[in-house]
Design a protein around this nucleic acid. Structure first.
Length: 583
RNA sequence: UGCGGGGUGGAGCAGCGGCAGCUCGUUGGGCUCAUAACCCAAAGGUCCUAGGUUCGAAUCCUAGCCCCGCUACCA
């Protein structure tokens, strides 16, 4: 395995707050992986940011009568708080409207242009004279040429389901003003994907560690044949096309957003004061890069971005693209527009981050769509997290604290059962680690829970609450072994539940951090300020290894790691959803 | 239309050629250190349907039914 790991997280679009779909689909899995890799001692960088360009932002800005930058800043800042609140430890979370990103994007564009992978061509698009803009297919409405439905969108007819080209629509009208747009020729730059068909095919040949849904999808795309794809747009919000005469056009958001992985690593290196450090993660053969996203983005990360990297040259291609399927909410697709969503800022007002992380990991849509329900949230919190792990920690710590003078007791000679438990903990590091390393996060969490159940069984047999009366030495040994076991659980659960692991670390009497430090920082770029999330794990004292809890260490007054939720929560939250709560 | 994923005890999932397994729930028992938590045991399954391959199929093949997503100008 490589010493360096680059963890890339899909860039959420800054047109609304983060919701659970973003978190479980794209943002939580990489955090689990990155935290695990850091514990292993790997050199890890995890980057992402807000995608701040594109038509929907400009449309929203117009509706509200504000400038695009205001929309972007509102939601970008909102996201920063959510990320820190959830404990998602990005080494850098930035955004796409920075000078650095603009420079890197334009360099990528010009290099691909020089090398002949980008060409100029003209195309016909609807233009609305009233709105004075070209209309993307989805912003044109009209009558479906197939079924005569009179409210079809230009990209697809909602009635017959057929994909459309807006130019085919009968009686086209502008979705914003209702005026009749007219076809007009415009010039755009195209990424010539046909040139990458063969190399991409070669690259995808040997990917046995990839998820089959991702690999099949990517191979299917290749087999159906790649076409050149327009990568510029006729709007004024985005990275300008760096070609004379084309400054009024911008680079298409997805061409621009994927470059963010590279530009953010460069920005991170600059912030570290080691400008060339980004090369360790992009040009060293000793680095593996992971890309996390929902399945709707597989296309951009297995075809377009690798093509761009191949075209640019001397940059590493993705090592793995463990895309997730979709998370539904109470049986229905998340929908921001229909207000059917659970937004993170709202959620964090009422719940701690770790129960949320626990439930989202346990129901993570790794191989198929899954469903978030409030009933399930309460059930998993109470019957799994609190019952098996939280209660275990509490029963061991309170017993030790009260009966052994608030410190780790001196054990007697360890018996077979004691060794068996400690060996099981050692094996758990192998099991949980193997699953996380393979991006099987549900299985990893489940293996950690199995380890916690093992400790509960041990206690039941050892019964220190009995032996303390008849044979205090035996009780001391059992509690010592159990304390070491939960000290190991602290590490096993850390990638999933960082804040409670830190809390347990402290209750066990340790000092220092095992989860690093996260903060929001305002950065000045040639006098222009922007806000980012940063992370510093350099002072971490944790490692992916079983406990070496010292005998005699002073414990701190134990508090429950997690709280039980009342059943009423289910009704209240469902009512909040239906009432359009959240936002 | 094409493509991808899925249909397994009450719920959610794993297994993908060799006695059908996990978590939760249910029932019975144990324990009483612990957040009525913990531990043990039991009940509960035509593995979507119909054909086929095989000594043997939930697992492979064929046909069909149903659910979800994508289909390249939302990201």
């Amino acid at each position: 395995m490589s010493d360096k790991v680059l963890v890339c997280v899909a860039w959420p679009y800054a047109d609304g707050p983060l919701h659970l779909g973003h978190i479980t689909g794209a943002m939580l899995p990489p955090d689990i992986l990155a935290r695990y890799m850091r514990l292993l001692g790997k050199d890890v960088v995890m980057v992402s940011g807000s995608d701040t360009h594109g038509t929907p932002i400009t449309v929203r800005a117009e509706l509200e009568g504000v400038k695009p930058i205001e929309i972007v800043e509102r939601y970008h800042n909102n996201m920063l708080d959510s990320l820190v609140g959830l404990g998602l430890a990005y080494d850098l979370y930035t955004h796409t409207n920075t000078e650095n990103h603009k420079a890197v994007t334009q360099d990528m564009f010009l290099t691909l242009l020089d090398k002949g992978y980008i060409f100029l061509d003209s195309m016909t698009q609807f233009y609305c004279d009233h709105c004075q803009r070209y209309l993307a297919d989805r912003f044109v409405e009209g009558t479906c040429p197939h079924c005569d439905y009179d409210n079809a969108r230009g990209d697809q007819c909602d009635h017959c389901g057929r994909p459309l080209d807006a130019l085919e629509l009968k009686l086209p009208r502008c979705r914003f003003c209702g005026a009749t747009p007219h076809p007009q020729e415009t010039e755009h730059y195209f990424l010539d994907l046909t040139k990458f068909s063969e190399p991409l095919h070669e690259w995808l040949k040997d990917k046995p560690h990839w998820r089959s849904n991702v690999l099949n999808f990517a191979r299917g795309l290749l087999e159906s044949g790649l076409r050149p794809r327009a990568i510029t747009r006729d709007i004024d919000w985005g990275v300008p096309v760096p070609v004379e005469g084309f400054e009024h056009k911008v680079i298409y958001v997805w061409f621009d957003a994927v470059i963010g992985y590279l530009s953010a690593t460069i920005e991170w290196a600059q912030l570290q004061g080691k400008e060339e450090r980004w090369r360790d993660f992009w040009q060293s053969e000793d680095c593996q890069s992971y890309y996390f996203m929902g399945k709707d983005n597989i296309w951009f990360h297995t075809i377009i971005w690798p093509a761009m990297l191949l075209g640019y040259g001397d940059l590493n291609l993705p090592y793995d693209v463990p895309a997730n399927e979709n998370l539904n909410l109470e049986g229905r697709t998340f929908s921001k527009s229909r207000n059917w969503a659970i937004f993170v800022p709202d959620l964090l007002e009422r719940y701690d981050p770790d129960p949320v992380r626990y439930v989202l990991t346990a129901t993570m849509p790794e191989a198929q769509d899954s469903d978030f329900t409030w009933r399930d949230f309460v059930r998993r919190n109470n019957d799994e997290l609190v019952a098996t792990y939280g209660n275990l920690v509490h029963r061991v710590l309170t017993f030790a604290y009260r009966r052994f003078d608030g410190q780790v007791p001196q054990p007697g000679r360890l018996e077979a059962a004691d060794h068996q438990l400690l060996d099981a903990m050692t094996r758990a590091f192998v099991d949980v680690g193997r699953e996380i390393g393979a991006c099987h996060f549900r299985a990893g969490l489940s293996a950690a829970m199995a380890a916690a159940a093992e400790v509960n069984r041990y206690l039941d047999v050892a019964a220190p609450w009995k032996t303390i009366k008849s044979n205090p030495q035996a009780a001391a040994t059992s509690i010592y072994v159990a304390l070491r076991a939960i000290d190991s659980l602290k590490t096993l659960f850390l990638p999933f539940l960082p804040k409670s692991s830190q809390a347990l670390h402290e209750m066990l009497g340790y000092k220092g951090t095992i989860i690093g430090r996260q903060w929001i920082e305002e950065i000045s770029e040639d006098g222009v300020k922007h806000r980012v999330v940063r992370y510093d794990g350099s002072k971490n004292v944790g490692e992916w290894a079983p406990s070496h809890l010292p005998v005699g260490q002073k414990l701190r007054d134990p508090k429950p790691l997690f709280v039980k939720l009342e059943d009423e929560v289910i009704e209240q939250e469902v009512a909040r959803l239906k009432g359009g709560g959240g936002h």
